[in-house]
């Protein structure tokens, strides 16, 4: 049953997948609670522009993705202050800009090829050693940052004005959090692909919200749900020869449906 671990590419796929399954819902819980669920999609489109730019300029594509998504992340934060009554407007503006830029850069690079497709839909089994080092490095930065600033991110998600009133450096922390979100997107792109990256940040959190007993518990359960999705998704893609990114995301959706159904049965009883 576990002969798939004899292959180097499957070992790397699992390593990358499990790391992503931890950091996506970790950042995702704060993102969802701040009602910024669309931020993942926006930053992943910015990453696509970065990848196209990387291909055009001969740069390693993930560096291009990181640079562009960081610029987009800071852009969202700046615009959010300008349009403080419409938090989601800043996200839509940056989303439009990113798609426009991505399309122009792809056409300039004339690079709508298999390599670009692998970033669009994920290519976890094509993850190479350099990808693993980048994913591991960024994951450590994200984990340590959330460990250090958990309290601050919690307070800002619950009540940003209250956190500011209590004397927290909210503006700086907001920028830092958005940078972490951008890193999470870049890390996840290789695994589930740009088109599905935000689903791993949002769907396990949605499952967890249905049954959690505290904020910490919400994070814990969403990480568990994401881990289950990645493991089942990867196994089924290997055995049934399915696209791994899509299998992972669909598994998370099945889990959500199952949790909803179980909850309904319990309520009926």
């Amino acid at each position: 049953m576990f002969e798939l671990f004899n292959y180097g590419f499957m070992q790397r796929a699992f390593a990358a997948g499990l790391l992503v399954a931890v950091i996506c819902p970790l950042i995702g819980t704060f993102v969802v609670m701040r009602r910024l669920s669309m931020i993942g999609d926006t930053l992943s489109h910015a990453s696509l522009a970065g990848i196209a730019a990387g291909m055009l300029g001969g740069l390693y594509p993930l560096w291009g993705a990181l640079l562009f998504s960081l610029i987009a992340a800071i852009g969202i934060e700046k615009l959010r202050k300008r349009f403080s009554q419409y938090a989601e407007l800043s996200i839509s503006i940056v989303l439009s800009a990113s798609i426009g830029l991505a399309v122009v850069l792809i056409s300039l690079a004339n690079s709508f090829n298999a390599d670009l497709m692998s970033y669009l839909f994920g290519s976890i089994i094509a993850v190479n050693a350099l990808d693993i080092y980048i994913i591991l490095g960024l994951s450590i930065i994200i984990l340590v940052s959330v460990g250090l600033f958990y309290k601050e991110f919690f307070y800002m998600a619950f009540d940003e004005e209250g956190a500011e009133l209590a004397g927290m450096p909210v503006s700086g922390l907001n920028v830092y959090f958005t940078v972490l979100t951008a890193m999470t997107i870049v890390v996840s792109m290789r695994v589930v692909g740009m088109m599905m990256v935000s689903s791993l940040m949002v769907v396990p959190v949605a499952c967890s919200l249905l049954i959690s007993k505290s904020f910490k518990n919400t994070i814990f359960l969403s990480v568990i749900f994401a881990l289950i999705s990645v493991v089942i998704g990867l196994f089924s893609s290997y055995w049934l020869d399915l696209a791994p990114g899509g299998s992972i995301v669909l598994t998370s959706i099945f889990i959500l449906i199952a949790v909803l159904a179980v909850k309904r049965i319990f309520r009926m009883q």
Partner: peptide, 30 residues
């Protein structure tokens, strides 16, 4: 704050987590 508009009613925090939040600035960053 004014109760009704002050927070997202679906926020999954416990009473203890909410009250602790005001100690965070005293505890300090990190």
């Amino acid at each position: 704050p004014q109760k009704a508009t002050s927070f997202n009613q679906g926020f999954p925090a416990t009473v203890e987590e909410v009250v602790s939040a005001n100690l965070y600035p005293i505890v300090g960053l990190a």
